[in-house]
């Protein structure tokens, strides 16, 4: 039963990916589908730049910011969970809690006065906001390890560094990946809004559709971003799930977290 369900999901995702790829590579072939949504002979396919280009820029912006956020956030989370950084632990928890109440779009807008228009503010907002889920999840991962395991690692004669690299980080990894997933999903959404501050990305298509009242643009922009986000998110989820599964039920239980943040932006 269960296996069948998983297989249907995988097939659906592969299918979605294939259609997405086909659409990005040869959008004009799909023009017929979208023409009914246009008025007065307006173009059915976005024509101010290729959709593939926009998709790649979009992904690049998100990827760059998320990688940077992951490096900084994981580093900080490691720092505050070591004895040397312990005095910053309580504060950093509070900052993350407060920070996550900030709407990502507000962070984006507030970056504009500092960075001007273009890719800059989008990257900065994505980076800043992306820190929060990764930091929080890494922190949870590193601070909820089974005490018996951490203690034995010391008792076996691992140095602090060996314990971190061989035991703590690998065990926290499913949660860290989940944090990166959340950051990426929020990033994909915020980058879409980034088009309103002139960042190159898929939001451009939706904005153009809204401005020229062209439903076909709105729908194709919306569907591409939506499918992209769902596929990427599922990829991370599958990765985290695989990591968690290998080490058994104890760490999987930690995955279902009722306080998990919503992920949209």
């Amino acid at each position: 039963m269960k296996r069948d369900k998983i297989r249907t999901g995988t097939v659906l995702r592969l299918l979605a990916f294939a259609v997405l790829l086909a659409f990005l590579l040869a959008p004009d072939r799909f023009a017929g589908l979208l023409t009914p949504l246009t008025n007065n002979g307006a173009p059915a396919i976005y024509n101010q730049g290729t959709l593939l280009d926009l998709t790649l820029s979009h992904l690049f912006t998100v990827g760059l910011s998320t990688v940077a956020a992951a490096i900084v956030a994981i580093g900080l989370a490691i720092f505050v969970t070591r004895p040397a950084g312990a005095e910053f632990l309580a504060l950093s928890r509070a900052i993350v809690n407060i920070g996550q109440t900030f709407p990502p779009v507000a962070v984006l807008a507030l970056s504009v006065p500092i960075m001007g228009f273009g890719e800059g503010p989008t990257r900065m907002a994505l980076f800043l906001y992306g820190l929060l889920p990764i930091f929080e999840n890494t922190l949870v991962g590193l601070s909820t390890l089974p005490p018996a395991v951490v203690e034995t690692a010391s008792a076996m004669g691992m140095t602090g560094r060996q314990r971190l690299l061989k035991v703590e980080l690998p065990l926290a990894m499913p949660l860290i990946v989940e944090g990166i997933r959340l950051s990426t999903v929020i990033g994909l959404a915020t980058a879409t809004i980034g088009s309103t501050v002139a960042a190159k990305g898929l939001g451009e298509v939706i904005v153009a559709g809204l401005l020229s009242n062209n439903l076909a643009f709105i729908v194709q922009g919306g569907v591409i971003t939506g499918v992209l986000a769902v596929l990427i998110s599922d990829g991370f989820e599958a990765l985290a799930h695989r990591m968690a599964k290998r080490r058994g039920a104890s760490s999987e239980a930690r995955q279902s977290d009722p306080d998990g943040q919503g992920s949209s932006a």
């Binding site: 959404a189 809204l210 919306g222 939506g226 769902v230 992920s263």
Partner: peptide, 11 residues
């Protein structure tokens, strides 16, 4: 939940 807000609004 995963679909970006602008995309969902648009769709």
């Amino acid at each position: 939940q995963t679909i970006p807000s602008m995309a969902l609004f648009g769709i």
